[in-house]
Nucleic acid binder design. Structure first.
Lengths: 137, 137
DNA sequence: TACTACATAATAATTATTATCATGTTGTAT
DNA sequence: ATACAACATGATAATAATTATTATGTAGTA
């Protein structure tokens, strides 16, 4: 779906800044932090403020357009909201999607937790930590 | 095992502060933050510094005595280092262990991720988010 | 075209985590 | 028992990341 249409469909206003920010998240698999999105969007909007990026990402998450991940005590944004696990490299800080068999099991895991009496489970995060291919030694 | 013996077995020095801190973690299921451990240990050692608690917890984690969890961008310490999942209540901030069927599956999940080519997976965190029994409405 | 509600930008405050360094204490060897 | 080297502690400060405030600007709607 077209990015402007996507924003409208969630009842969000369409501004050049928002289009740029959402386009960035939709086109990367790098799971950028607010800071990184800020750096990227400044290439096109040099005068955009950090606060705008921060608040915009927040509203995107509230609308369910993006996934706000908490990995190693850092927030990272993922344009892919489908359930999947993540890997964090302790050496270089890179965040990768973990694909394969795990992804199918992911939802089963969530369903299992939802059966815990008393708990109202809204979301789930699965984070692996270690070294990525480039940093492996 | 006796707490002093446990410290020694990991090559760590035994001090009154360390005994108190490790005892706290071994006797609670509350997954306290550094700040909370600091508050608890001050009941017995009113002049202990935050830094001591912070550094001590860090060395405990390095020695594998405790588990440093990253949940909702906050570090929490768990005296139980056996693999298990956690639940975080967005309302009250409480962290609970998730027991049952999930715990057995936890290690399978880790093994699955370890099969991902190229990755060197060291650890794994599974965090559920939602409302706890007391905060459910 | 005008108007209202929301978005933006500049700035500042807050919170959590980590660092520095002088002094004190533990473990070990005498 | 004593002394000493290595590490722990406490006081303080710095850092890093996240969130708040507010005046001005713009999108959406009538």
């Amino acid at each position: 779906m077209d990015t402007a249409t996507l924003l409208k469909s969630k009842g969000l206003r369409v501004t050049p800044q928002r289009l740029a920010i959402l386009d960035i998240l939709r086109s990367t698999k790098a799971h950028p932090s607010v800071e990184t999105v800020y750096d990227l969007v400044r290439e096109r909007f040099p005068s955009i403020s950090f606060n705008t990026v921060y608040k915009t990402l927040q509203s995107f998450e509230d609308a369910g357009l993006v996934w706000k991940l908490s990995i190693d005590n850092l927030y990272r944004y993922d344009g892919n909201t489908l359930p999947h696990a993540h890997f964090y490299c302790h050496r270089c800080g890179m965040v990768l999607d973990v694909n394969g068999e795990l992804t199918q099991r992911f939802s089963e895991f969530l369903e299992m937790a939802r059966k815990t009496p008393g708990l109202k489970v809204q979301s789930m995060e699965v984070n692996f930590y270690g070294h990525c291919p480039a940093c492996r030694y």
